[in-house]
């Protein structure tokens, strides 16, 4: 069985940041492996270790910079990686439909039996790519999975879907399937030194639009960012000033007024 894990390098804004037009100033962004995808990689690697999966392939849509992140997936045990990028993508806003088109092309090449993606990307937080991809490639799916028990012989994945308010739904999903992985599904490993060394020798294949039979028109999505700004505060928080001792003193007063430890 082949497992394909979609992996995104997400941008995080630092404590101080500036907005330039409809973007965050490039210098104010830090990049990291999407938290949800870390759990998806771990799930794939555990299937390989259990002898259920023969190969785990990481797939990303991202610029050259994101190879650093995809190497993390390789260091944690993915066998190889595919990175899709093109100059034409650079200028586009990657909406869900556009990403699905790019991911589909690689699914067609790789023919996985199981696709693991994250519930959401921490930066854009569309929370939609996995389920939309499933529809496009004709796979079954389950969103927000926090427990997975794969019965490869029966061709089903028994999953728990984490609903709101501490309720879990137990569902039997036909394979092939796309599962969107929720944090807490497992304990993602840290990359070992050996893993990091091995990752240097693993393949990251790169594909541009021409390689996958698409044209720039295929990445011209329907969404355009027209504004970006800092949200207005809903409350008027009193920010307590002073050094730690002074601030704690004032906060203690406030808390006692509210009846704490009275």
């Amino acid at each position: 069985m082949k497992v394909l894990v979609t992996v995104k390098e997400v941008a995080e804004v630092g404590d101080d940041f500036a907005i330039e037009g409809t973007d965050i100033a490039e210098g104010d962004l830090e990049y990291d492996l999407n938290e949800w995808d870390d759990y998806a990689i771990e799930a794939g690697v555990q299937l390989a270790e259990a002898g259920v999966a023969d190969e785990v392939v990481a797939l990303t849509i991202g610029p050259e910079r994101s190879e650093e992140t995809i190497r993390m997936a390789l260091a944690k045990g993915a066998d190889r990686a595919v990175r899709v990028w093109d100059d034409a993508i650079e200028d586009a806003f990657l909406d869900v439909e556009t990403k699905v088109g790019l991911l589909e092309a690689i699914v067609d090449e790789e023919e996985p039996d199981l696709v693991l993606s994250g519930v959401q990307a921490a930066d854009d937080a569309f929370g939609a790519t996995g389920v939309a991809l499933a529809d496009r490639i004709g796979f079954e799916h389950a969103a927000v999975v926090n427990d997975l028990d794969l019965d490869a012989d029966a061709g089903v994945a028994n999953v728990r879907r984490e609903l709101e308010g501490g309720v879990e739904e137990l569902t039997e999903v036909d394979m092939p399937a796309v599962l969107t992985v929720q944090t807490g599904l497992n304990e993602p490993r840290y990359a070992s030194l050996r893993g990091i060394r091995q990752a240097q020798r693993k393949e990251i294949a790169t594909r541009d639009l021409a390689d996958i039979g698409l044209s720039p028109a295929d990445v011209d999505g329907a969404l355009t960012v027209t504004e970006m700004y800092e949200p207005e505060s809903e409350s008027d928080a009193e920010i307590i000033e002073g050094d730690a001792g002074e601030a704690a003193g004032r906060l203690t007063e406030v808390l006692r007024e509210k009846g704490v430890d009275a």
Binding site: A11, E12, V13, F17, I19, T22, I24, F93, A122, D123, D124, A125, L223, T224, V225, T226, E227, M228, Y229, E230, P231
Partner: peptide, 12 residues
């Protein structure tokens, strides 16, 4: 919202 609710964006 984007970036963990640190910014809001408007999409056409």
């Amino acid at each position: 919202e984007q970036y963990g609710s640190k910014v809001e964006t408007t999409l056409a």
